[in-house]
Every structure is written in structure tokens, then in C-alpha cells.
């Protein structure tokens, strides 16, 4: 049996009188704090960065672009319809004689505007609904979620199209239309997240120390549910732009001479058979690229937040 050479009483500090702290608990790994870590994970993902750059590019292109390259987008010019790209017109003209390149910029503006507004409306509504349902619990929760179930049973596109027959044409109207029916999924997501968080130990710990409901909601539930909401907003933008494309394609989009990328593709069947490729593929390409970029960003955000929560 040997006597230990150094005292094993870590609890009381060692013989040299050194502070108890540093080695006993072990070194604290510095992994970078909270949101910084998520941001770093996000920017590590090259595709996500590309996606972000693309989105910014489109915003600049569509909104700032016309300042540099203004074209006529209101007065129909019957002499210059359906011209192939070349000369004066970078991407040719459409059936109204409008410069296609400029039209893409214009169409992009409305696509982005409606995409973001609709997503904002859907997210705000959905988050509030889901949070209240999740917090209230019991009968209130039951009723609120049954309403969501009923509305979810109705195929979204049809309902929106039916209403678009009477109520469409402007950015505001379309944003409201899309947003007011897209809040159902975020509501479900947020409610699920709130329910999960409510049972977590750190929420119990807050209750045990005497925190009231308001504090728990504001300081604990909302910040932790935020990541779900942020990820969802991004996907909502992508989905809203797609729905807008469908509505526009079927002819129920914006009022002439306003347009969106979907509306521009309304006559695409004809364009394709007539061989007017410049009226189909550039617009469609922009649409796909923008939605793709948004989806990539959303995916990367989801991964970034997940990593943070799981890292041990």
C-alpha cells in the first residue's frame, strides 16, 4: 500500500495552495459561442454561401438593374414583337414588344417582393398560432390544431387559384393570398417545437427557481424556437415564389403591364412550339436558380442550427 505523493483531495485545493478551479474541472474547450458557431457552420458550407450570393445578386439585378438599363415596359410596341436576341435587345422581345431582358428584371422584382411578403405573413401568422396553441395546451390547443388540420386538407393551389379569380392582380393581393394560406405548416412546426421545449429540463429548472410564465416564454421558449422559425422562413420564400409561378403560368397572376416570372411563362407552350426560346429558358432559368439558391440557404441554415444543438 503506498501513500499518494500528492494529495488527492481536489476538493480542498492542493498543497501548493493553488486555486481549486483550473485543472480539476478539466480544460474548457473553446468552441466559439452560440450564434457565432452557427454562422461559422453556415459559411463553411460553400453551397450555402453561393446560394446567398445568388440571392443578393438577384435582388440587386432586379431592383437596381433597371436604373442602369431602363427599358420600356408599359407601352406596347407592335412593331418589335417576338424579336430574337441581338442588336438593341439583349434577350429579344416578347409578344408585346417589350425588351425581354428588362422584363426579366421587372418580373423578378415582383417575384422577390411577393415571395418575401407572403413568407413573412405566413411565418408571423403561423408562429403566433403555433406558439399560442403549444403554450395553451388542452382544449384551446385541440381546437386550434383541428382548424389547421381542416385547412390543410384543402389542396393549397386550388384554393388559391379559386380565390385568384376574384382577388388578384397586384403584389399586395397576391402576397396576402399566398401568405394567408401558407401559415399552416409553420404553425404545426412551431407548435411541435414549443411542446418539445416545454418538457425540457431547463424549462423545469426555470419554473423551480420561481420564473413566471412570461419569463419562460420570452427568455427560454422563443429564443430556442427561433432556429426553427428562421429555417422555415427561408423555405417559405422558396415555396411562395413557386406558387406564384404556378398562378402566373395559369394566367391569374399580375395585372398587365406588371408581370412576374410566372406570368412571363404564361404563353410558354406557344413560345416553345414557335421556337422563341429566349422567352422561355432565361426566365425559367432565373426562376429555378433563385428558388434553388433559397432552398440551399434554408438547408444550410437547418444544418448549422442542428450542429450547434448537438455538439457536445
Amino acid at each position: 500500500m503506498t501513500e499518494p505523493e500528492a494529495p488527492l483531495l481536489e476538493g480542498l485545493g492542493d498543497a501548493a495552495g493553488m486555486p481549486i478551479g483550473a485543472p480539476e474541472g478539466g480544460e474548457v474547450q473553446i468552441i466559439a459561442s452560440g450564434w457565432n458557431l452557427a454562422l461559422r457552420e453556415f459559411f463553411d458550407n460553400k453551397l450555402a454561401v453561393v446560394g446567398l450570393v445568388v440571392i443578393v445578386f438577384f435582388i440587386l439585378f432586379c431592383f437596381i438593374g433597371p436604373l442602369f438599363d431602363s427599358t420600356n415596359q408599359t407601352l406596347v410596341n407592335p412593331l418589335n414583337t417576338d424579336l430574337a436576341p441581338g442588336g438593341h435587345y439583349l434577350l429579344g422581345t416578347d409578344e408585346h414588344g417589350f425588351d425581354e431582358f428588362g422584363r426579366i428584371m421587372l418580373g423578378g422584382q415582383t417575384a422577390l417582393e411577393i415571395g418575401f411578403f407572403a413568407a413573412a405573413i405566413a411565418t408571423v401568422l403561423g408562429t403566433l398560432w403555433g406558439a399560442i396553441a403549444g403554450l395553451a395546451g388542452g382544449l384551446v390547443d385541440g381546437i386550434m390544431m383541428r382548424i389547421v388540420d381542416v385547412l390543410l386538407s384543402i389542396p393549397l393551389l386550388f384554393l388559391v387559384l379559386v380565390l385568384a379569380t376574384k382577388y388578384s392582380g397586384t403584389v399586395v393581393r397576391l402576397s396576402l393570398l399566398i401568405g394567408l394560406f401558407s401559415w399552416l405548416i409553420p404553425a404545426r412546426l412551431v407548435r411541435g417545437e414549443v411542446l418539445t421545449l416545454r418538457t425540457r429540463d431547463f424549462v423545469s429548472a426555470s419554473r423551480v427557481m420561481g420564473a413566471n410564465r412570461r419569463r419562460i416564454v420570452l427568455r427560454h421558449l422563443i429564443p430556442n424556437a427561433l432556429s426553427v422559425v428562421i429555417v422555415n422562413v427561408t423555405f417559405q420564400v422558396a415555396d411562395s415564389i413557386l406558387i406564384l409561378a404556378y398562378i402566373g403560368f395559369l394566367g391569374f397572376g399580375l395585372q398587365f403591364p406588371s408581370t412576374s416570372w410566372g406570368d412571363m411563362l404564361g404563353g410558354a407552350q406557344n413560345y416553345v412550339t414557335e421556337g422563341y426560346w429566349w422567352l422561355v429558358y432565361p426566365v425559367g432559368g432565373c426562376l429555378v436558380v433563385l428558388v434553388l439558391a433559397t432552398n440551399l440557404v434554408g438547408d444550410a441554415l437547418r444544418d448549422a442550427f442542428d450542429v450547434r444543438l448537438r455538439r457536445r
Binding site: 474541472g25 478539466g26 474548457v28 474547450q29 457536445r312
Partner: peptide, 10 residues
């Protein structure tokens, strides 16, 4: 620091 930067014992 944030909790995820610590080990279980810490």
C-alpha cells in the same frame, strides 16, 4: 461560454 462548450461533468 455556452453550455455546449463544456463536458458532461463540467
Amino acid at each position: 461560454r455556452y453550455p455546449h462548450e463544456f463536458s458532461g461533468g463540467q
